[in-house]
Simulated assay, not measured.
Amino acid sequence: MDSSVIRLIVTLTWLHSLHAAFTNVALNKAATQTDTHIGGDASLAVDGSSFQASSYADTGCTRTVSEDAFWEVDLGDLYVINQVQILNRLVARLQDVEIYSSRERNAYTLANYQSGVAGDSVTFTQDIFARWIKVTRRTPIAALSLCEVLVFGFLPHDAESFRRLSSHEPTGSPLTVINSLTSLMKCAAHCDRQMAPRCRSAQYNTSTKTCSLYQWFDNNLSTSANSVMLIREYGVRFLT
């Protein structure tokens, strides 16, 4: 590669927040479900109660009418998440549970899955960066009922600083190419402002003064001695 090319990577991993306290960021957030059996509102899974019903006659847990159902919560912002815990009913337990996550509305991807019948609770440990969390079942049997869904995470700090590390390369086609930029930090600033789709890496060419913005990056080590990482303050966790 031309030695005049400097690569900048803006990642979605976390440096200063490695020791941040993870709290239940789903508490009292807006929750919805496919449909609702009388008294089994979706909000009951994010009300902070640890009550686990021992029969369908007990209130305090969500319940749908349909079997092929889902439950979801809007966290209201993009959170760093490392665990989702579901408190189960003590009867009519969940089985074949699927957890989906999404950064944009209705753009879900499967985050985790547990086969078989769940116990009193089921815990999924998974590094996720998301706003929406959805719970469903791979093999629907009876109505979907959840007593509580806890999503442990934190909101990355708004005051972002950057530091450089060597390695990694942008991948895919550029989101856009910006001409006549006089510095790589101006290129980084354009990447920082590019939100939809989110810019995570940028390539600055010092000869042509062009800045190419990319949505993704390759986490294989770069072979170029001129490759430079520009990482957000909340940067390093997902690189490993």
Score class of each variant (00 low, 15 high):
Val84Gln: 02
Val91Asn: 10
Cys199Leu: 07
Cys187Phe: 05
Asp58Gln: 11
Phe217Ala: 06
Val117Glu: 14
Leu239Trp: 04
Ser145Tyr: 02
His19Asp: 13
Ser66Asn: 15
Leu175Phe: 04
Lys134Asp: 03
Ser66Glu: 07
Arg164Tyr: 06
Ser183Lys: 04
Asp74Glu: 02
Arg232Val: 01
Tyr100Pro: 01
Val80Phe: 08
Gly76Gln: 08
Ser145Arg: 09
Ala26Trp: 00
Thr223Ser: 15
Leu175Val: 08
Arg7Gly: 04
Asn24Thr: 11
Thr32Glu: 12
Lys29Ser: 06
Cys187Met: 06
Trp216Gly: 15
Thr109Trp: 08
Arg193Lys: 15
Ala31Asn: 07
Arg163Ala: 07
Phe51Ala: 11
Asp47Thr: 03
Ser173Ala: 14
Ile178Tyr: 05
Ala107Ser: 11
His19Arg: 13
Ser161Asn: 04
Met195Tyr: 09
Arg89Met: 10
Leu184Asn: 02
Tyr214Asp: 03
Thr34Phe: 12
Leu78Glu: 12
Thr240Glu: 05
Ser180Ile: 06
Pro156Lys: 01
Val151Gly: 00
Asn220Ala: 11
Arg198Val: 13
Leu15Asp: 12
Met195Phe: 05
Val177Ala: 06
Arg164Cys: 01
Leu150His: 05
Ala57Thr: 14
Asn220Gln: 15
Ala143Thr: 13
Glu233Gly: 11
Thr182Leu: 06
Asn88Tyr: 01
Arg93Tyr: 01
Gln215Asn: 02
Thr136Met: 02
Ser167Phe: 06
Asn220Val: 08
Thr59Val: 12
Lys29Asp: 07
Ser121Asp: 14
Cys191Leu: 02
Ser161Gln: 14
Ser180Asn: 15
